[in-house]
């Protein structure tokens, strides 16, 4: 259809909305310019910004994952160390307990041995004391017996007995002299 036809069709009498072709065209061109302008001024920067933002988010996410991985690894190493330390502590504890028990047994044995020695020494002392007392008693009995014998003999020996003793002594001494 010819624009002149369209214009004519859209004259004031037939166009209560005041629509004009050049107006529409103008508006359409405006719209296109706006769209183009918006694309370059808004859409593209925004897109670029969003892409950059997305890239940053991805980077942060990756870094976060790496950090988590590293943290997990460190935690595992830490747990291993803890377990090893616990095992070593348990082992050291057991060894210390064993050593203490061994030392206690040695001390007990030493004490037992010492007690045995003390008892033996005491027994020996008692036996020695018993022997000494027995010897003392024997000596005292001997002394008393001899004293009693002296007293009795002093009373009982007569002059005839004395003479007989003298004869016996002289005979013995004479016999010794002959043997010399």
């Amino acid at each position: 259809m010819s624009p002149f036809v369209i214009t004519t069709a859209l004259s004031a009498e037939n166009n209560p909305l005041s629509l004009d072709l050049w107006n529409i065209l103008f508006h359409m061109i405006n719209l296109v310019i706006l769209i183009v302008a918006l694309y370059f001024l808004l859409f593209k920067p925004t897109k670029k910004f969003m892409a950059k933002r997305k890239e940053e988010i991805v980077k942060i996410t990756r870094e976060n994952e790496e950090l988590q991985e590293s943290t997990k690894k460190i935690k595992e190493e830490y747990d291993d160390l803890i377990e090893k330390a616990k095992a070593e502590a348990a082992k050291a504890n057991e060894e210390a307990l064993k050593a203490a028990k061994s030392r206690a047994e040695a001390v007990e044995e030493e004490a037992r041995q010492k007690a045995k020695e003390i008892v033996e020494h005491a027994n020996q002392s008692v036996e020695a004391e018993k022997e000494r007392l027995a010897n003392d008693v024997k000596t005292q009995v001997s002394v008393i017996s001899v004293e009693i014998a002296k007293k009795v003999l002093s009373r009982e020996i007569t002059p005839e007995d004395d003479s007989a003793l003298i004869d016996q002594c002289l005979k013995e001494w004479k016999g010794e002299h002959e043997n010399d």
Partner: peptide, 28 residues
């Protein structure tokens, strides 16, 4: 107590009862 003791040339001959009893005591 009884018997005699004779000292002759620094030698002692002891035949006394007390000497015998002393000897017995030493043996005991």
């Amino acid at each position: 107590i009884g018997g005699i003791r004779v000292i002759c040339e620094d030698e002692i001959f002891d035949g006394t009862v007390s000497a015998e009893l002393e000897k017995i005591l030493q043996d005991l």
